[in-house]
């Protein structure tokens, strides 16, 4: 049984069908990439999985439960965390606090515990602090722990967003163009990071614009164009698919 499975998922906005009858599986432990030109519907797929939108039709099953129509916070609680194409950090909170927010779903302190700082809350805060610092250490941001998130350089913000998502120990991580806007060296670093995330046991669904970038690290690739899947397969097979080349370079290329 696949970890995540989309069956005939369609989403229309008024007249525009952003995602058309999409079906694919994500096997646990893999890096699966979703590629395609601008406006192909990649981010919309993420928004459907994480519950921002309700599919117009089709079903989304995660861990053997239907999740379409769940609120984003419930989806997150079930173990799907994501990053955003345009970085959405909590800018006026520290780097450490951002990661701690990511741990929210793993923590159990109720309002009462928080207000009175009960022994339970103290214990939980201590262990969360430790876990968050360890994660920051791992991702290379620990020296910025007390810095405001918005003061980080752009590439670091990308990493912080990933750390924040990882903090809740997700089963599936959705990365929406994590390397967008970074320089070539950072891009390579981020792709290495994606691999080591998978090596931690987290399944990754990766959106990337740049085909070359994902080819080296993906186990499987799905290509979208105008909301429809035009090809899928192992990176090498997809790379040479005529329709993929056309979609990327335009017809007649």
């Amino acid at each position: 049984m696949a970890l995540l499975s989309l069956q005939g998922v369609t989403k229309s906005f008024g007249g525009l069908t952003a995602v058309k009858n999409l079906t694919f599986d994500v096997e646990a432990g893999a890096i699966i990439s979703l590629i395609g030109p601008n406006g192909a519907g990649k981010s919309t797929v993420f928004n459907l999985i994480t519950g921002i939108y309700m599919p117009s039709s089709g079903s989304i099953v995660f861990d053997e439960h239907a999740i379409e129509g769940l609120k984003p916070h419930s989806v997150a609680a079930r173990g799907i965390l994501r990053t955003f194409q345009n970085i959405r950090l909590f800018s006026h909170m520290t780097v450490l606090e951002n990661v701690l927010v990511g741990r929210h779903a793993r923590m159990r302190s109720a309002a009462w515990d928080c207000a009175f700082r009960t022994p339970f809350a103290q214990k939980e805060e201590r262990s969360s602090d430790a876990a968050a610092m360890e994660l920051l250490e791992w991702i290379g941001l620990s020296r910025f722990a007390t810095e405001w998130a918005r003061n980080l350089p752009y590439g670091m913000q990308r990493r912080l967003e990933i750390a924040r998502a990882l903090a809740s120990e997700p089963k599936l991580l959705l990365l929406d163009e994590p390397a967008a806007g970074t320089n070539p060296a950072e891009k390579i670093g981020l792709m290495k990071l994606v691999q080591s995330i998978r090596d931690r046991g987290v399944t990754v669904l990766l959106i990337e614009h740049d085909m070359k970038l994902v080819m080296g690290i993906s186990d499987y690739v799905h290509v979208l164009d105008y909301g429809e899947e035009i090809a899928h397969g192992k990176p090498d097979a997809v790379r040479h698919d005529q329709r993929v080349i056309e979609a990327y370079l335009g017809k007649g290329a």
Partner: peptide
């Protein structure tokens, strides 16, 4: 504070 900074992202953090 996460809600104050970005409600949608907060919702996605669970």
């Amino acid at each position: 504070m996460a809600i104050r900074e970005d409600e949608l992202a907060a919702e996605h953090m669970g």
